[in-house]
């Protein structure tokens, strides 16, 4: 039995055959056996994998005691060390869906193993885990079990063996929002001309890139008294100390850097330069303050127009850097600035 991959399964009280709504308050338990859908699921694994146990928890209990439930579940998973984790399918059951989603997300984040579940497209749990899990699209009721299990088993086998996962349509999962690069038969210009002809004839066509939607943040309150305020300087213009000690990438940055500038009057050359790969670096390398004006801020500090320039200067490269990374950098830098008691921030971009 050793070369089979190991699956740990999660179901609620109903599919765990404990009972209906009246049993929704039961605490999580673990059984070293296959229960409910886990049985049918395993039969679809074609002997390539096995279900080593089933976790069962009442839907109400989970949603009312999320932390305790998650910690119980995670302990079991860590101890049993499955290769893959499967939950549900939850169909359109809201509390069950949320439980599956929360657990899937926690397992993916903490254990880094593949997770599979099944849901109806409108299940409220979907958004919590659609990025982390492969969520097989199911009908809205348990009548869809017979259709859902084979798809869940098929993708589980592929994930366990590290095989390439096909498109959402082929595999039956709900798109995770990942932009996957592929090589296709027709070159881009030909696809563009074909799209154009369809558009001109009034035929249906499908864009290859739906436009992004950016969320917004309420403006923070203004600084009351600049002369007492600490101002931090940040840039996405790639200004770094000579030698780029933290190896910040010239494009598609994966990290940011912070440098103590408390003893400096300026970010002058040749102590600083730009590592940004997206613009002509000549002018920035002559006078790095043209990108990140530390010199001027220090003057304002001396003149008393502002209270203080923050001791640290924060920097990264903006070019080709994914929005997700930019969000991560902003969150990390913001946290530091908040803790340092910074009152306002100037961020320059190239």
């Amino acid at each position: 039995m050793s070369d089979k991959f190991k699956v740990l399964y999660y179901v609620n009280q109903f599919f765990g055959q404990i009972g209906g709504e009246d049993k929704a308050g039961i605490e999580p338990e673990f059984r070293k056996e296959k229960v409910g859908p886990a049985i049918g699921f395993e039969s679809k694994l074609k002997s390539e994998g096995e279900v080593i146990g089933t976790l069962i928890c009442g839907d109400n209990y989970f949603n009312e005691h999320k932390e305790e439930s998650l910690s119980f579940v995670m302990d079991v998973i860590k101890k049993e060390a499955p290769d893959i984790f499967v939950a549900g399918p939850a169909f359109n059951a809201g509390r069950y869906g949320v439980a599956c989603a929360e657990i899937c997300k926690a397992v993916a984040d903490e254990m880094g193993i593949p997770v599979v579940t099944g849901m109806y497209i409108e299940n409220p749990g979907l958004d919590t885990c659609r990025k982390e899990a492969y969520v097989i699209e199911t009908s809205d009721s348990a009548g869809g079990m017979r259709k859902a299990l084979p798809s869940m088993a098929k993708i589980t086998c592929k994930l366990a063996k590290g095989l390439e996962i096909g498109s959402p349509e082929e595999e039956g999962f709900i798109a995770r929002g990942m932009r996957k690069s592929l090589i296709v038969e027709k070159r881009g210009s030909l696809r563009a001309v074909e799209m154009l002809l369809k558009r001109l004839k009034g035929e249906e066509f499908e864009t290859e890139m739906p436009m992004p939607v950016f969320n917004i943040v309420e403006p923070a309150a203004a600084i009351k008294d600049l002369s007492k305020a600490t101002i931090a300087l940040c840039t996405s213009g790639g200004i770094v100390p000579a030698g780029n000690p933290d190896h910040i990438q010239s494009a598609s940055a994966q990290k940011w850097g912070k440098y103590d500038v408390s003893g400096r009057d300026a970010l002058n050359a040749p102590d600083f330069y730009t590592t940004h790969g997206g613009y002509d670096p000549v002018y920035a390398n002559e006078i790095p303050d043209r990108v990140a004006p530390l010199d001027i801020l220090k003057e304002f500090e001396k003149e008393g127009y502002i209270g203080k320039v923050n001791n640290y200067f924060y920097t990264t490269t903006g070019t080709g850097t994914s929005v997700a990374n930019a969000v991560k950098f902003g969150t990390e830098i913001g946290k530091e600035l908040k803790e340092a008691g910074v009152d306002g921030v100037i961020l320059t971009s190239t």
């Binding site: 969320n215 917004i216 943040v217 403006p219 923070a220 309150a221 203004a222 600084i223 940040c234 930019a326 969000v327 950098f329 902003g330 969150t331 830098i333 913001g334 946290k335 600035l337 908040k338 910074v342 009152d343 306002g344 921030v345 961020l347």
Partner: peptide
């Protein structure tokens, strides 16, 4: 935006 989320202008 992420920095502003901390309430810092």
């Amino acid at each position: 935006k992420e920095i502003e989320r901390y309430g810092i202008p």
